[in-house]
Nucleic acid binder design. Structure first.
Lengths: 339, 339
DNA sequence: CATGCGGAGTTAATCGATTAACTAAATTTA
DNA sequence: TAAATTTAGTTAATCGATTAACTCCGCATG
């Protein structure tokens, strides 16, 4: 037999008070209007009956559903982004909030529909996440719904956002090599025109310029940031007359190609060649042999920061938007040796 | 200036009808009670005003929120499971339903809380997903909420579920090798006691028995199903007097270790050694050189199957639970050559 | 002694939809 | 022509909470 879950009215009845009193007793609202023992009695009755409030009914009245929307472009699929969801999820959970997920499969026309679907469900706010660090226009469908961008910055900074500190991460990775005495540090980059490429490349150029080296000799570009591209480009770079003593790779997948190239050219990592990289992808960096030193993309931290910022926005609607750079800590492993 | 979104009452007013008529006109309910031109007029007014129904209010009345809960134990983090979420998400989206996600971080005591949090929000049903194929007890917190298990089967089959057809996938992988003329097929397994290990191992044993081979000679077990374990175990297996001409690996990470072992023993894949594996992990199988032939875990398909089954349950509450085996198709690459 | 006030509640309105029950006019049927 | 049925709506109840406005009692104060 299926018994219906108890409503607030059932609790109120059983405790011999009105629903108003029951509501105030359970929520601790209404100040001094509720006596201490009435409050205790109501609470006990609620526990006894196994009362759980109907958040839908409450949301209708209070205009707060304790749900926030997570809109991602293909986010659920990409491997690291799971951490972004988890970071957001954890911070939300701690505040008694649940995540309503929508994935747009990278189709921008779907984004508007996704946002509308969330708004129909009266979510309290929206997290807008992109698959990789980029600059976007905030979809106008957002309207006045509080929102925070994740792994993206808005062109006009009208909304709070958090992105990885790519420059800091690159400086950190290069510092690992510099500390080991490397000067001639090569860079393997990708031809894909993304924010990450731009910043990592520019930061590496600063380093090269600081040592008065020729970037042309030390830079190589693959058409795509994949293992094959890393392999082919590394073979070219390492076959040049004056090869670098260390390589900074655009990402771990390319670094995987560098390992293959080094093996083929009979260069031992890290003794003949030190390697540092970016992303710290969990299925790659620790699994390579030797373990790859890599600047970590702080997806988890970005996810929870975004939720906290959204909660702040909900608490103080007039607060100024904040653009946050999240540090990329270096995961030290065994791919760096003294020059 | 922030104008409030229009309510049904606003549409009804603007169209000069009652809210009841407006509701019926927009939803197509109420049979012939609404005239064709009234219906048109109401619809036009709704579009004009940009009316979007408040699903929360509707849900309070209809007891359908068009949301389903997705409870995972660490699911968001694990790499393949993204596909499971996406499969579920896609199927749900197509039916106008959104996914409310909760992750329990693998903590069983949290599962009850997670389910309660979802029920408070009046979700229409629950998807209960586990990180890897296993047999579980259905948490009693579920109560009478319609539920479907994902990548898990309930001990008493009281709830619908979908799991990968591990036996079929193993047979398929072995058939790849058999078709290439291999007889002496080794198996690298893991010591971890999981459902997948049991079925893959038992199915491989059937094959060995069918050819009258000695399983002891051809089987090797690593403590964990990781790259290092695969490497060490493969070195042992391939150094035996009569080494197998092909290896079936428990998973792709172990296969990655086999590749390393083969390189070290100067065996060329696939000419000296054919390799097939399981999981078809997207960051491993296609990235290895040569590409690894692997039986795919159909996470996406399981995700969407589970949603469809849940929708069926919602439509016909008295339907019998179904235990579904989802086929594991073979992803053919270049790691198999004729014996 | 009347008045004002704080304490402890209750009553009833409200959030934004859906839907059962009712109504009035037009049309068909007997 | 009167009764029955169909058409095209309207009115009001309802879902399960929250909360503004009101009541009632006892006590202190001028």
């Amino acid at each position: 037999m299926v018994t219906k879950p108890p409503r607030l009215a059932d609790v109120a009845n059983a405790a011999g008070v009105s629903t108003a009193t029951a509501s105030m007793a359970l929520n601790g609202t209404g100040g001094s209007r509720i006596g201490a023992d009435t409050r205790r009695r109501v609470r006990a009755t609620a526990t006894e009956l196994g009362y759980r409030p109907n958040t839908i009914a409450r949301g209708l009245r209070t205009r707060r559903t304790q749900m926030i929307g997570f809109v991602g472009d293909d986010v659920a699929t990409t491997p690291f982004a799971g951490q972004m969801i988890r970071g957001a999820h954890d911070a939300a959970r701690r505040a008694g909030i649940l995540l309503l997920m929508v994935d747009t499969s990278g189709d921008p026309s779907e984004t508007g529909e996704a946002i509308a679907a969330l708004q129909e469900r009266q979510i309290d706010g929206i997290l807008l996440a992109t698959m990789y660090h980029q600059v976007i226009d905030v979809p106008k469908a957002i309207g006045s719904t509080p929102a925070v961008l994740l792994d993206a910055r808005s062109a006009d900074d009208s909304v709070s956002s958090v992105v990885p500190d790519e420059r800091g991460g690159t400086l950190g990775a290069l510092a690992e090599l510099a500390a080991a005495g490397h000067r001639r540090i090569g860079h393997l980059t990708t031809a894909e025109d993304v924010e990450a490429r731009r910043i990592r490349l520019a930061t590496w150029r600063e380093h090269v310029a600081a040592y008065g080296l020729d970037p042309g000799e030390l830079l190589a570009e693959a058409p795509q940031a994949k293992t094959r591209g890393g392999y082919e480009t590394a073979v070219r770079l390492l076959s040049r007359p004056e090869r670098p003593s260390a390589i900074f790779c655009f990402n771990d997948r390319m670094a995987m190609g560098v390992y293959r190239a080094a093996a083929e050219l009979e260069l031992s990592i890290p003794d003949d060649l030190s390697v540092v990289s970016y992303d710290n992808q969990e299925l790659i960096a620790p699994e390579l042999d030797p373990g790859l030193t890599s600047a970590a993309l702080p997806h988890f931290e970005m996810g929870s920061w975004a939720v906290k910022e959204l909660l702040r926005k909900l608490a103080e609607p007039d607060a100024e938007p904040v653009q946050h750079l999240m540090p990329c800590p270096i995961a030290r492993r065994d791919s760096v040796a003294p020059a």
